[in-house]
Design a protein around this nucleic acid. Sequence first.
DNA 1: ACCAACAAGATGAGCGCTCAACAATTCCGG
DNA 2: CCGGAATTGTTGAGCGCTCATCTTGTTGGT
Lengths: 172, 172
Amino acid sequence: MEHTRWLDDDEQRTWRSFLAAQRLVLDRVERRLQSNAGMPQAYYEILVRLSEAPGRTLRMSVLAESAWSSRSRLSHAVARMEEAGWVVRRSCPTDRRGQLAELTDEGFEVLRNAAPDHVESVREAVFDGLTAAQQAGLREACETLVEYLSGTGQWPVTRDAGPDGPGSARAS
Amino acid sequence: MEHTRWLDDDEQRTWRSFLAAQRLVLDRVERRLQSNAGMPQAYYEILVRLSEAPGRTLRMSVLAESAWSSRSRLSHAVARMEEAGWVVRRSCPTDRRGQLAELTDEGFEVLRNAAPDHVESVREAVFDGLTAAQQAGLREACETLVEYLSGTGQWPVTRDAGPDGPGSARAS
DNA sequence: ACCAACAAGATGAGCGCTCAACAATTCCGG
DNA sequence: CCGGAATTGTTGAGCGCTCATCTTGTTGGT
């Protein structure tokens, strides 16, 4: 490759505002979650996925995909959360390489307590600042990007997790 | 606060797709930058800001704001980049608390070599996957968010850095 | 002129993440 | 049914980031 496809001014502004917005939003949400629940955003997402799964149990590999995490990251994270008593690991009966991660009652309780403030912080950081049309535009772009980027390298992705159900953590 | 403003299904999907898209895009871009230039995205952004500044020099506090970085993060980052010979620090003549960070010729060269592949990876990760309308929608939402979130806590923000000029790193 | 408040930047501990390497198991062609 | 290839999950080193804290320097009220 010797002729670089540089970004024009519009693209430059799009990319830079995406970077800035992403940082501002995530730093804000993460900071608040850290101070109110003592966990990083990535852990919260893992707990949510588990809480929505049948039996509150998922295989590590499936959990990794659905939380957009690498296997290694998930492994470290679950190890820590197991120490905290939020999750337990059991070996998978049908595949002895596999591990099942199960959300404990304590972990579920932690999630349930963390949820209201977290959701509030997301609302304040994103939805309170955007019109309905802007929210629609953001969603349209992000969903397209997810579709476009999924399954192409990067993670061991095998897209098959169902789309978002309503968070069951809020429904006791 | 005792009545939580939960996210409805549309908001839920918007938030989750934002999280996923953000992760997919940034992980991809960062991985490529790391392997081709040996630096994280945050460092690249710092080098770009310096390269665009008059005299390729900025005060630490100004640099921190313009790269959306905390002071602490910048301090650590510049320390590392100084070891690498990409940047030098000099004390500020008008305020003896201050430090000036200056991009060295070597640092500029590193940036210039890193830029083409980085830009290509951004194009592949974002622009090649979105229609013009989706790009506009994304930009509109992100610019609004940046405007909305800037200057409200979080960083020691004193918004006054000019908006993005064209990246001077690509113009020799 | 003084001193309390504030601002700039550096620093070290702790932690989450990446990357590469590894062990254990399953899969599949011959 | 055997043996190489692929898959699953873990581990440890290294690094960037956050948070709290500290030092140094500036500012503003009296």
